[in-house]
């Protein structure tokens, strides 16, 4: 059913901390490894050793340069499905393959129903859906729906593969509708943003902005000057050495 639920019982999603993401792509390949052999069709790679290698990925890392005054910086930016509350990809689906789960808010594709028209990928402003070239069905992040409830995995591993593997712990998974959850607290305590709010998709996933970067001139206490410390001491520069062990 491709009408969106009025509300979902939970809002499972990711909170991604741009402050610590170093762009290592761990979440990218770990996601692919889990999902190519998990839910639905494998994530195919065409021309894997050839001239035009190209595959399906459910999570990709971009990087952006910022430019503000003298401080140029690079921000690494992981992006996967945001599991929007008002997911435009779901309502456009003509076959009922795309849906948003009432129980936890995960946006999924029932691949058995997908006819591969690709309209949902067009509808998503974020580029979160990719067509599998061999099966002809739409692939997207499932929030590792086959991990998070999987009784064959130890409890501590019941989280998305990307979260489990992230070396900088830049990814958090939880229920964003529960104000007491870790993810909700992160969103409340840090500067969190929706991506493209103007698209009115109401994404569940949240991005925590990097903290301010600054130049080294601003390091240390601004009113503290090493050189003045040297001259302030009686006798001037290096008198501290003469006085070093008096009475010691």
């Amino acid at each position: 059913m491709t009408s969106l639920p009025k509300s979902t019982e939970r809002k499972l999603g990711l909170v991604i901390d741009l402050d610590v993401c170093v762009g290592c792509h761990a979440c990218v390949t770990n996601c692919k490894a889990w999902n190519t052999s998990g839910y639905g069709a494998p994530l195919a790679d065409e021309s894997p050793y050839g001239n035009d290698p190209s595959g399906v990925w459910l999570n990709r890392i971009h990087s952006f340069e910022t430019e503000k005054g003298e401080m140029n910086a690079l921000v690494h930016f992981p992006k996967s499905c945001l599991h929007c509350d008002d997911a435009p990809c779901v309502t456009v689906c003509p076959t009922g393959a795309s849906y948003k789960r009432v129980s936890d808010g995960i946006v999924l594709v029932d691949e058995a129903k997908c006819m591969g028209c690709g309209l949902c990928a067009w509808a998503c402003p974020y580029g979160a859906r990719e067509m599998d070239p061999t099966e002809g069905v739409m692939k997207k992040c499932t929030l590792c729906v086959d991990r998070i409830y999987n009784k064959n995995l130890p409890e501590e591993d019941r989280e998305p593969a990307c979260v489990r593997t992230c070396p900088t712990n830049a990814r958090f998974f939880g229920d964003l509708s529960d104000p007491d959850s870790e993810v909700s607290k992160l969103v409340a305590n840090r500067e969190a943003v929706d991506l493209m709010p103007e698209q009115e998709t109401n994404p569940v996933n949240q991005y925590l902005l990097p903290t301010e970067r600054y130049g080294a001139e601003q390091l240390g206490s601004p009113d503290f000057n090493l050189a003045s410390l040297a001259t302030q001491k009686p006798g001037g520069i290096l008198s501290w050495i003469d006085n070093l062990f008096n009475g010691n």
């Binding site: 052999s37 494998p42 994530l43 195919a44 065409e46 894997p48 595959g55």
Partner: peptide, 14 residues
């Protein structure tokens, strides 16, 4: 030989 397509894990997909 180099396969033209790789579908790693196909046999285990659900």
């Amino acid at each position: 030989s180099r396969p033209s397509t790789l579908r790693y894990g196909k046999e285990w997909t659900a």
